[in-house]
Design a protein around this nucleic acid. Sequence first.
DNA 1: AAAAACTACTTTAATCTTAAAATAGTTTGG
DNA 2: CCAAACTATTTTAAGATTAAAGTAGTTTTT
Lengths: 186, 186
Amino acid sequence: MSDLSPPLLDAETAGTEVGHAHQDELRLWLRLLTCTNMIEGQIRSRLRADFDVTLPRFDLMAQLYRAADGMMMSEVSKRMMVSSGNVTLIVEHLLASGDVERQTSAHDRRAQLIRLTEAGRVHFREMASAHEAWIAGMFDGLTQKDIANLMKLLAKAKASLQADLSQHGSSADTPVVKKPSSRRSR
Amino acid sequence: MSDLSPPLLDAETAGTEVGHAHQDELRLWLRLLTCTNMIEGQIRSRLRADFDVTLPRFDLMAQLYRAADGMMMSEVSKRMMVSSGNVTLIVEHLLASGDVERQTSAHDRRAQLIRLTEAGRVHFREMASAHEAWIAGMFDGLTQKDIANLMKLLAKAKASLQADLSQHGSSADTPVVKKPSSRRSR
DNA sequence: AAAAACTACTTTAATCTTAAAATAGTTTGG
DNA sequence: CCAAACTATTTTAAGATTAAAGTAGTTTTT
Protein backbone atom coordinates (compact mmCIF):
# COMPACT_ATOMS: atom_id res chain seq x y z
CA MET A 1 0.00 0.00 0.00
CA SER A 2 1.01 3.53 -0.55
CA ASP A 3 1.61 5.83 2.35
CA LEU A 4 -0.99 8.10 0.93
CA SER A 5 -4.18 8.41 2.85
CA PRO A 6 -5.50 11.87 2.20
CA PRO A 7 -8.01 13.59 4.39
CA LEU A 8 -11.27 14.67 2.85
CA LEU A 9 -9.74 18.08 2.50
CA ASP A 10 -10.30 19.52 -0.90
CA ALA A 11 -9.03 22.27 -3.07
CA GLU A 12 -11.42 24.86 -1.88
CA THR A 13 -10.22 24.68 1.64
CA ALA A 14 -7.12 26.26 0.24
CA GLY A 15 -6.99 29.70 -1.29
CA THR A 16 -3.93 31.82 -1.00
CA GLU A 17 -4.99 35.32 -1.68
CA VAL A 18 -2.24 37.33 -3.20
CA GLY A 19 -4.55 39.82 -4.81
CA HIS A 20 -8.26 40.29 -4.21
CA ALA A 21 -9.49 41.42 -7.55
CA HIS A 22 -10.85 38.19 -8.98
CA GLN A 23 -11.61 35.98 -6.04
CA ASP A 24 -14.84 34.59 -7.41
CA GLU A 25 -13.38 33.42 -10.66
CA LEU A 26 -10.59 31.72 -8.76
CA ARG A 27 -13.03 30.00 -6.45
CA LEU A 28 -15.13 28.87 -9.38
CA TRP A 29 -12.11 27.35 -11.04
CA LEU A 30 -11.14 25.50 -7.89
CA ARG A 31 -14.60 24.10 -7.44
CA LEU A 32 -14.74 22.99 -11.05
CA LEU A 33 -11.41 21.29 -10.57
CA THR A 34 -12.52 19.54 -7.41
CA CYS A 35 -15.62 18.09 -9.03
CA THR A 36 -13.76 16.91 -12.09
CA ASN A 37 -11.02 15.33 -10.04
CA MET A 38 -13.48 13.52 -7.84
CA ILE A 39 -15.31 12.04 -10.79
CA GLU A 40 -12.24 11.20 -12.78
CA GLY A 41 -10.61 9.59 -9.77
CA GLN A 42 -13.63 7.42 -9.18
CA ILE A 43 -13.89 6.32 -12.77
CA ARG A 44 -10.21 5.56 -12.87
CA SER A 45 -10.22 3.45 -9.75
CA ARG A 46 -13.46 1.65 -10.51
CA LEU A 47 -12.24 0.79 -14.00
CA ARG A 48 -9.15 -0.67 -12.49
CA ALA A 49 -10.90 -2.45 -9.66
CA ASP A 50 -13.78 -3.87 -11.66
CA PHE A 51 -12.21 -4.40 -15.07
CA ASP A 52 -8.48 -4.17 -14.56
CA VAL A 53 -8.18 -1.56 -17.25
CA THR A 54 -6.60 1.90 -17.31
CA LEU A 55 -8.46 4.99 -18.38
CA PRO A 56 -6.39 5.56 -21.54
CA ARG A 57 -7.12 2.01 -22.66
CA PHE A 58 -10.81 2.45 -22.01
CA ASP A 59 -10.79 5.71 -23.94
CA LEU A 60 -9.05 4.12 -26.88
CA MET A 61 -11.49 1.23 -26.93
CA ALA A 62 -14.33 3.73 -26.90
CA GLN A 63 -12.91 5.35 -30.01
CA LEU A 64 -12.62 2.03 -31.79
CA TYR A 65 -16.04 0.88 -30.68
CA ARG A 66 -17.63 3.62 -32.72
CA ALA A 67 -15.60 2.77 -35.80
CA ALA A 68 -16.73 -0.67 -36.87
CA ASP A 69 -14.25 -0.73 -39.73
CA GLY A 70 -11.39 0.28 -37.52
CA MET A 71 -9.21 3.33 -37.67
CA MET A 72 -5.70 4.36 -38.58
CA MET A 73 -3.28 4.95 -35.76
CA SER A 74 -3.02 8.57 -36.82
CA GLU A 75 -6.79 8.94 -36.68
CA VAL A 76 -6.88 7.58 -33.15
CA SER A 77 -4.05 9.88 -32.16
CA LYS A 78 -5.92 12.88 -33.53
CA ARG A 79 -9.18 11.97 -31.87
CA MET A 80 -7.70 11.27 -28.48
CA MET A 81 -5.40 14.24 -28.83
CA VAL A 82 -2.44 12.32 -27.59
CA SER A 83 0.84 11.76 -29.39
CA SER A 84 1.16 8.91 -31.83
CA GLY A 85 3.95 7.50 -29.70
CA ASN A 86 1.49 7.24 -26.90
CA VAL A 87 -1.11 5.54 -29.08
CA THR A 88 1.46 2.98 -30.10
CA LEU A 89 2.04 2.07 -26.48
CA ILE A 90 -1.60 1.85 -25.51
CA VAL A 91 -2.39 -0.24 -28.55
CA GLU A 92 0.39 -2.63 -27.66
CA HIS A 93 -1.26 -3.28 -24.31
CA LEU A 94 -4.62 -3.84 -25.95
CA LEU A 95 -3.09 -6.20 -28.48
CA ALA A 96 -1.64 -8.19 -25.63
CA SER A 97 -4.99 -8.41 -23.86
CA GLY A 98 -6.64 -9.48 -27.12
CA ASP A 99 -9.05 -6.55 -27.24
CA VAL A 100 -7.61 -5.03 -30.39
CA GLU A 101 -6.19 -6.32 -33.66
CA ARG A 102 -3.87 -4.54 -36.06
CA GLN A 103 -3.26 -4.87 -39.78
CA THR A 104 -1.22 -2.99 -42.31
CA SER A 105 -3.28 -0.91 -44.70
CA ALA A 106 -3.62 -2.25 -48.24
CA HIS A 107 -3.20 1.18 -49.80
CA ASP A 108 -0.44 2.55 -47.70
CA ARG A 109 2.05 0.18 -46.21
CA ARG A 110 3.09 2.75 -43.64
CA ALA A 111 -0.34 3.00 -42.10
CA GLN A 112 -1.78 0.56 -39.60
CA LEU A 113 -5.47 -0.14 -39.28
CA ILE A 114 -6.55 -1.08 -35.78
CA ARG A 115 -9.93 -2.34 -34.70
CA LEU A 116 -11.61 -4.03 -31.76
CA THR A 117 -11.74 -7.80 -31.80
CA GLU A 118 -15.09 -9.43 -31.13
CA ALA A 119 -13.93 -10.11 -27.58
CA GLY A 120 -12.94 -6.49 -27.32
CA ARG A 121 -16.39 -5.32 -28.38
CA VAL A 122 -18.04 -7.49 -25.76
CA HIS A 123 -15.57 -6.37 -23.16
CA PHE A 124 -16.09 -2.73 -23.98
CA ARG A 125 -19.88 -2.98 -23.83
CA GLU A 126 -19.68 -4.33 -20.31
CA MET A 127 -17.37 -1.57 -19.21
CA ALA A 128 -19.33 1.17 -20.94
CA SER A 129 -22.52 0.05 -19.32
CA ALA A 130 -20.97 0.10 -15.85
CA HIS A 131 -19.39 3.46 -16.60
CA GLU A 132 -22.72 4.99 -17.47
CA ALA A 133 -24.26 3.71 -14.28
CA TRP A 134 -21.41 5.06 -12.17
CA ILE A 135 -21.84 8.54 -13.55
CA ALA A 136 -25.60 8.46 -13.16
CA GLY A 137 -25.03 7.47 -9.54
CA MET A 138 -22.60 10.28 -8.93
CA PHE A 139 -25.06 12.90 -10.18
CA ASP A 140 -27.96 11.32 -8.39
CA GLY A 141 -28.32 14.31 -6.09
CA LEU A 142 -29.08 16.66 -8.97
CA THR A 143 -32.50 17.16 -10.53
CA GLN A 144 -32.95 17.09 -14.29
CA LYS A 145 -33.35 20.82 -14.09
CA ASP A 146 -30.06 21.20 -12.24
CA ILE A 147 -28.39 19.18 -14.92
CA ALA A 148 -29.90 21.28 -17.68
CA ASN A 149 -28.81 24.49 -15.95
CA LEU A 150 -25.33 23.22 -15.44
CA MET A 151 -25.09 22.22 -19.08
CA LYS A 152 -26.14 25.67 -20.14
CA LEU A 153 -23.75 27.51 -17.84
CA LEU A 154 -20.86 25.25 -18.73
CA ALA A 155 -21.56 25.81 -22.40
CA LYS A 156 -21.26 29.51 -21.76
CA ALA A 157 -18.08 28.99 -19.81
CA LYS A 158 -16.66 26.92 -22.63
CA ALA A 159 -17.43 29.63 -25.12
CA SER A 160 -15.72 32.13 -22.88
CA LEU A 161 -12.70 29.87 -22.62
CA GLN A 162 -12.49 29.42 -26.35
CA ALA A 163 -12.66 33.15 -26.88
CA ASP A 164 -9.82 33.62 -24.41
CA LEU A 165 -7.79 30.81 -25.90
CA SER A 166 -8.00 32.15 -29.40
CA GLN A 167 -6.41 35.38 -28.22
CA HIS A 168 -3.48 33.61 -26.68
CA GLY A 169 -0.48 31.61 -27.83
CA SER A 170 -2.37 29.53 -30.36
CA SER A 171 -0.38 31.12 -33.14
CA ALA A 172 -0.27 28.11 -35.42
CA ASP A 173 -0.26 24.45 -34.56
CA THR A 174 -0.11 24.93 -30.83
CA PRO A 175 -2.15 22.23 -29.13
CA VAL A 176 -4.98 24.39 -27.96
CA VAL A 177 -6.35 22.09 -25.32
CA LYS A 178 -2.93 20.97 -24.28
CA LYS A 179 -3.29 18.11 -21.80
CA PRO A 180 -6.62 16.75 -22.94
CA SER A 181 -5.92 13.07 -22.92
CA SER A 182 -8.58 11.75 -20.58
CA ARG A 183 -11.41 12.23 -22.94
CA ARG A 184 -13.56 9.33 -21.94
CA SER A 185 -16.40 9.60 -24.50
CA ARG A 186 -19.40 7.33 -24.54
CA MET B 1 8.39 19.81 -31.96
CA SER B 2 5.91 17.10 -31.25
CA ASP B 3 3.92 15.50 -34.00
CA LEU B 4 0.80 16.44 -32.11
CA SER B 5 -1.35 19.11 -33.61
CA PRO B 6 -4.88 18.39 -32.47
CA PRO B 7 -7.94 19.83 -34.13
CA LEU B 8 -10.31 21.93 -32.12
CA LEU B 9 -12.41 18.84 -31.68
CA ASP B 10 -13.46 18.31 -28.12
CA ALA B 11 -14.86 15.59 -25.96
CA GLU B 12 -18.45 16.38 -26.54
CA THR B 13 -18.20 15.77 -30.23
CA ALA B 14 -17.77 12.18 -29.20
CA GLY B 15 -20.39 10.16 -27.40
CA THR B 16 -20.69 6.46 -28.05
CA GLU B 17 -24.09 5.45 -26.92
CA VAL B 18 -24.16 1.95 -25.65
CA GLY B 19 -27.23 2.47 -23.54
CA HIS B 20 -29.61 5.41 -23.54
CA ALA B 21 -30.75 5.57 -19.96
CA HIS B 22 -28.50 8.30 -18.57
CA GLN B 23 -27.41 10.34 -21.53
CA ASP B 24 -27.72 13.68 -19.81
CA GLU B 25 -25.50 12.79 -16.91
CA LEU B 26 -22.92 11.49 -19.31
CA ARG B 27 -23.01 14.64 -21.37
CA LEU B 28 -22.74 16.77 -18.27
CA TRP B 29 -19.68 14.88 -17.19
CA LEU B 30 -18.04 15.27 -20.58
CA ARG B 31 -18.69 18.97 -20.63
CA LEU B 32 -17.31 19.38 -17.14
CA LEU B 33 -14.23 17.50 -18.22
CA THR B 34 -13.76 19.59 -21.31
CA CYS B 35 -13.91 22.85 -19.38
CA THR B 36 -11.52 21.67 -16.72
CA ASN B 37 -9.06 20.33 -19.26
CA MET B 38 -9.10 23.53 -21.24
CA ILE B 39 -8.37 25.64 -18.19
CA GLU B 40 -5.80 23.32 -16.73
CA GLY B 41 -4.03 23.01 -20.08
CA GLN B 42 -3.84 26.76 -20.42
CA ILE B 43 -2.53 27.27 -16.93
CA ARG B 44 0.02 24.56 -17.40
CA SER B 45 1.33 25.92 -20.66
CA ARG B 46 1.31 29.54 -19.60
CA LEU B 47 3.17 28.71 -16.40
CA ARG B 48 5.79 26.97 -18.44
CA ALA B 49 5.98 29.60 -21.15
CA ASP B 50 5.99 32.64 -18.90
CA PHE B 51 7.75 31.34 -15.79
CA ASP B 52 9.38 28.07 -16.78
CA VAL B 53 7.69 26.26 -13.94
CA THR B 54 5.58 23.10 -13.84
CA LEU B 55 2.15 22.98 -12.28
CA PRO B 56 3.15 20.70 -9.39
CA ARG B 57 5.95 23.06 -8.48
CA PHE B 58 3.62 26.02 -8.59
CA ASP B 59 1.14 24.16 -6.41
CA LEU B 60 3.78 23.27 -3.90
CA MET B 61 5.02 26.85 -3.75
CA ALA B 62 1.44 27.97 -3.18
CA GLN B 63 1.24 25.68 -0.16
CA LEU B 64 4.47 27.02 1.24
CA TYR B 65 3.54 30.61 0.53
CA ARG B 66 0.70 30.38 2.97
CA ALA B 67 2.92 28.88 5.65
CA ALA B 68 5.40 31.54 6.54
CA ASP B 69 7.13 29.26 9.03
CA GLY B 70 7.42 26.44 6.55
CA MET B 71 5.97 22.98 6.64
CA MET B 72 6.99 19.38 7.12
CA MET B 73 7.29 17.24 4.02
CA SER B 74 4.47 15.08 5.29
CA GLU B 75 2.25 18.09 5.76
CA VAL B 76 2.84 19.18 2.17
CA SER B 77 2.13 15.67 0.99
CA LYS B 78 -1.15 15.57 2.84
CA ARG B 79 -2.27 18.96 1.63
CA MET B 80 -1.43 18.35 -1.98
CA MET B 81 -2.75 14.83 -1.73
CA VAL B 82 0.19 13.41 -3.58
CA SER B 83 2.52 10.75 -2.33
CA SER B 84 5.45 11.72 -0.19
CA GLY B 85 7.77 10.25 -2.79
CA ASN B 86 6.40 12.72 -5.24
CA VAL B 87 6.89 15.62 -2.85
CA THR B 88 10.50 14.62 -2.38
CA LEU B 89 11.11 14.89 -6.09
CA ILE B 90 9.32 18.20 -6.55
CA VAL B 91 11.14 19.71 -3.59
CA GLU B 92 14.44 18.64 -5.05
CA HIS B 93 13.72 20.66 -8.16
CA LEU B 94 12.69 23.67 -6.12
CA LEU B 95 15.84 23.40 -4.03
CA ALA B 96 17.86 23.41 -7.22
CA SER B 97 16.11 26.52 -8.51
CA GLY B 98 16.61 28.23 -5.17
CA ASP B 99 12.93 28.77 -4.47
CA VAL B 100 12.83 26.51 -1.43
CA GLU B 101 15.10 25.72 1.48
CA ARG B 102 15.12 22.64 3.67
CA GLN B 103 16.25 22.00 7.22
CA THR B 104 16.05 19.07 9.58
CA SER B 105 13.58 19.53 12.39
CA ALA B 106 15.02 20.21 15.81
CA HIS B 107 12.54 17.92 17.55
CA ASP B 108 12.49 15.02 15.17
CA ARG B 109 15.55 14.24 13.16
CA ARG B 110 13.51 12.28 10.64
CA ALA B 111 11.39 15.24 9.71
CA GLN B 112 12.36 17.94 7.25
CA LEU B 113 11.04 21.46 7.41
CA ILE B 114 10.78 23.15 4.05
CA ARG B 115 9.98 26.75 3.33
CA LEU B 116 10.15 29.32 0.55
CA THR B 117 13.30 31.38 0.30
CA GLU B 118 12.89 35.12 -0.02
CA ALA B 119 13.55 34.77 -3.74
CA GLY B 120 10.92 32.06 -3.83
CA ARG B 121 8.33 34.32 -2.22
CA VAL B 122 8.96 37.06 -4.73
CA HIS B 123 8.89 34.57 -7.55
CA PHE B 124 5.63 33.06 -6.35
CA ARG B 125 3.91 36.41 -5.98
CA GLU B 126 4.63 37.21 -9.60
CA MET B 127 3.29 33.90 -10.76
CA ALA B 128 0.21 34.00 -8.56
CA SER B 129 -0.69 37.41 -9.79
CA ALA B 130 -0.46 36.33 -13.42
CA HIS B 131 -2.39 33.17 -12.61
CA GLU B 132 -5.26 35.11 -11.16
CA ALA B 133 -5.41 37.34 -14.20
CA TRP B 134 -5.42 34.37 -16.56
CA ILE B 135 -8.37 32.82 -14.86
CA ALA B 136 -10.28 36.06 -14.72
CA GLY B 137 -9.67 36.37 -18.45
CA MET B 138 -10.88 32.89 -19.15
CA PHE B 139 -14.19 33.51 -17.36
CA ASP B 140 -14.58 36.93 -18.86
CA GLY B 141 -17.63 35.86 -20.83
CA LEU B 142 -19.61 35.03 -17.67
CA THR B 143 -21.54 37.55 -15.63
CA GLN B 144 -21.19 37.70 -11.85
CA LYS B 145 -24.58 36.09 -11.69
CA ASP B 146 -23.48 33.23 -13.95
CA ILE B 147 -20.53 32.67 -11.69
CA ALA B 148 -22.70 32.63 -8.60
CA ASN B 149 -25.10 30.15 -10.19
CA LEU B 150 -22.31 27.91 -11.29
CA MET B 151 -20.83 27.95 -7.82
CA LYS B 152 -24.15 26.94 -6.35
CA LEU B 153 -24.81 24.12 -8.79
CA LEU B 154 -21.28 22.81 -8.52
CA ALA B 155 -21.61 22.80 -4.75
CA LYS B 156 -24.68 20.65 -5.12
CA ALA B 157 -22.88 18.38 -7.55
CA LYS B 158 -20.01 18.05 -5.13
CA ALA B 159 -22.35 17.07 -2.35
CA SER B 160 -23.91 14.47 -4.61
CA LEU B 161 -20.49 13.12 -5.47
CA GLN B 162 -19.49 12.90 -1.85
CA ALA B 163 -22.66 11.02 -1.03
CA ASP B 164 -21.95 8.57 -3.82
CA LEU B 165 -18.32 8.21 -2.86
CA SER B 166 -19.10 7.40 0.72
CA GLN B 167 -21.17 4.44 -0.43
CA HIS B 168 -18.41 3.02 -2.54
CA GLY B 169 -14.99 1.43 -2.01
CA SER B 170 -13.86 3.89 0.62
CA SER B 171 -13.90 1.13 3.19
CA ALA B 172 -10.91 2.28 5.15
CA ASP B 173 -7.96 4.39 4.10
CA THR B 174 -8.76 4.35 0.41
CA PRO B 175 -7.76 7.67 -1.12
CA VAL B 176 -11.20 9.04 -1.69
CA VAL B 177 -10.31 11.64 -4.24
CA LYS B 178 -7.81 9.40 -5.88
CA LYS B 179 -5.94 11.40 -8.54
CA PRO B 180 -6.19 14.78 -6.95
CA SER B 181 -2.73 16.11 -7.60
CA SER B 182 -3.39 19.25 -9.56
CA ARG B 183 -4.93 21.16 -6.78
CA ARG B 184 -3.69 24.56 -7.68
CA SER B 185 -4.95 26.68 -4.78
CA ARG B 186 -4.69 30.45 -4.59
C1' DA C 1 15.07 -1.02 28.65
C1' DA C 2 13.86 -3.94 24.84
C1' DA C 3 10.29 -5.24 21.45
C1' DA C 4 6.62 -3.72 18.74
C1' DA C 5 4.26 -0.32 16.46
C1' DC C 6 4.27 3.86 14.32
C1' DT C 7 5.91 7.93 11.65
C1' DA C 8 8.79 10.48 8.19
C1' DC C 9 11.08 10.13 4.42
C1' DT C 10 13.61 7.97 0.43
C1' DT C 11 14.20 4.68 -3.09
C1' DT C 12 12.81 1.77 -6.71
C1' DA C 13 9.94 0.11 -10.30
C1' DA C 14 6.06 0.55 -13.39
C1' DT C 15 3.13 3.38 -16.17
C1' DC C 16 1.99 7.42 -18.66
C1' DT C 17 3.06 11.47 -21.19
C1' DT C 18 5.64 14.57 -24.16
C1' DA C 19 9.21 15.86 -27.26
C1' DA C 20 12.52 14.88 -30.47
C1' DA C 21 14.95 11.96 -33.54
C1' DA C 22 14.86 8.01 -36.59
C1' DT C 23 12.78 5.11 -40.08
C1' DA C 24 9.97 3.97 -43.86
C1' DG C 25 6.97 4.95 -47.52
C1' DT C 26 4.72 8.42 -50.80
C1' DT C 27 4.24 12.40 -53.63
C1' DT C 28 5.87 16.09 -56.44
C1' DG C 29 8.76 19.22 -59.37
C1' DG C 30 11.95 19.39 -62.77
C1' DC D 1 13.02 8.90 -63.22
C1' DC D 2 15.21 11.05 -59.19
C1' DA D 3 15.89 14.08 -55.44
C1' DA D 4 13.43 16.77 -52.12
C1' DA D 5 9.63 17.35 -49.35
C1' DC D 6 6.08 15.39 -46.97
C1' DT D 7 3.49 11.95 -44.14
C1' DA D 8 2.87 8.03 -40.84
C1' DT D 9 4.66 5.59 -37.48
C1' DT D 10 8.13 3.86 -34.19
C1' DT D 11 11.79 4.51 -31.11
C1' DT D 12 14.22 6.78 -27.59
C1' DA D 13 14.86 9.71 -23.81
C1' DA D 14 13.33 12.49 -20.08
C1' DG D 15 9.92 13.92 -16.70
C1' DA D 16 5.96 13.09 -13.73
C1' DT D 17 3.12 10.15 -11.04
C1' DT D 18 1.81 6.20 -8.19
C1' DA D 19 2.53 2.18 -5.47
C1' DA D 20 5.27 -0.54 -2.84
C1' DA D 21 9.24 -1.57 -0.34
C1' DG D 22 13.01 0.01 2.44
C1' DT D 23 15.45 2.86 6.00
C1' DA D 24 15.82 5.52 9.98
C1' DG D 25 14.14 7.56 14.01
C1' DT D 26 10.45 7.86 17.73
C1' DT D 27 6.86 6.37 20.82
C1' DT D 28 4.43 2.97 23.35
C1' DT D 29 3.92 -1.18 25.83
C1' DT D 30 5.23 -4.43 28.94
